[in-house]
Design a protein around this nucleic acid. Structure first.
Lengths: 221, 221
DNA sequence: GGTGGCCGTTCAGGCTAATGTCAGGTTTTG
DNA sequence: CAAAACCTGACATTAGCCTGAACGGCCACC
């Protein structure tokens, strides 16, 4: 499997390259969008790891161009913590996944493996919580077998819950998932999204813990 | 897990130290960058809590130096609300998370736990005390196997007890857990909450030490 | 270029349960 | 025995939460 890494930070680039490279994975590492574009034109990559802030432009531009040419190569975005809101846009722009810096290298391996699995056509792992069936790779949810469609932000929130089912998530932790890190939020957006998630996933899916936050109900109803 | 707290405000420093210290977490508290630098050279910390405005310099300088030496110790920055631009800079400088003063102590716990988990990958620990079973991450309690629901303030108090089972906690220490530091309280709120906790956790769960404070009973009843 | 629909965001109104205080009782201490 | 310290039921207040509705931006499609 051939991986293109687009990342201009030296330390991180090295670490990622070393982490991924093995018998099955070859990594080409470039540091500018220019090189990246040249690379995808000459080589058919199986996966692209894409930093967003690069010296000669924004990763989205590259991503959009790539998709515009019809290429469906899976793309994982590597984004800094203060650009979390970008991920919404990123998913819209055609990214398959994203990782927030700083991330565990093992986490990276897991995502890469997941993409590889999907790429080979193997089924991605499915998490069962209550009467929900969640396919993390595909961002697909079934509720009692019936498919449920979530919008980008609904998913962003829900993903927070699914990563550790049953764990109590504070309001600010949830806000960090939706907005640029540390952004002040004045309205009741979280409540609105929780409300919408409940409408789609079931009234009891998410439990309010007054004054503390929310948690995903882990056992069926 | 070993935590370095770099904070020059006495009251806040104490409160944070007390909040974090438990069987699993040892806290070293220093008040200047000088001491902080000396500390990180002699001890391998698992987490650093860093105030930005310190008597002998700015926290960023410390953070940059730390990263320059290749240390990847997770760092959570503690900063005042009005320094928005600092946030971006801080994340670029290599911080892992941010807490904006004034923050809830329970919020601090959550972040520390999250960072710790991110780096160790462990699930949240479950503590057993007497006939109580406490999951700190989930904020869940079982008493003889049966779930117990606590309100935000009840939990805030209880967290103080559970972190140091059997240790005597003074009234003012407990008050610090319920209210922002320094808030004087005139009524008998502590007594009321201790009473409410006893009703939910068992009459003997919390022992009164007349004139001194309270402590959590550690062996079953 | 226009238009319709979807999504994100905010607001207002209504509701429930958590909170803080008090008063009257109980226990401990000197 | 009196005073100090503590306990706890009751209650008014309000913080915190829920949700329908409306608005505006953006994008795809015509």
């Amino acid at each position: 499997m051939r991986v293109l890494l687009v990342e201009d930070t030296a330390g991180l680039g090295e670490a990622v390259r070393d982490q991924i490279t093995d018998d099955d994975h070859a990594v080409d590492w470039v540091q500018t969008l220019d090189f990246a574009e040249a690379s995808v034109q000459t080589i058919a990559y199986d996966l692209i790891l894409l930093d967003l802030l690069l010296p000669d432009g924004h990763g989205f531009d590259f991503l959009r161009k790539l998709r515009a040419t019809g290429k469906k190569t899976p793309v994982i975005i590597l984004t800094a913590r203060d650009q979390v809101s970008d991920r919404i846009e990123g998913l819209n722009a055609g990214a398959d996944d994203y990782l927030i810096k700083p991330f565990d290298l093992s986490e990276l391996s897991a995502r890469v493996a997941a993409v590889a699995r999907r790429y080979r056509g193997d089924p991605s792992p499915v998490v069962h919580v209550g009467n929900l069936e969640v396919d993390l790779g595909d961002h697909r949810i079934r509720r009692s077998g019936l498919p449920v469609e979530l919008t980008a932000r609904e998913w962003a929130l829900f993903e927070g819950f699914i990563q550790r089912p049953g764990m109590l998530l504070s309001r600010s932790q949830l806000e960090d998932r939706l907005y640029a890190f540390g952004a002040e939020i004045e309205s009741n957006t979280i409540e609105v999204y929780v409300s919408r998630l409940r409408k789609k996933l079931g009234r009891d899916a998410i439990v309010t813990v007054r004054g503390m936050g929310y948690r995903l109900e882990t056992h069926g109803h």
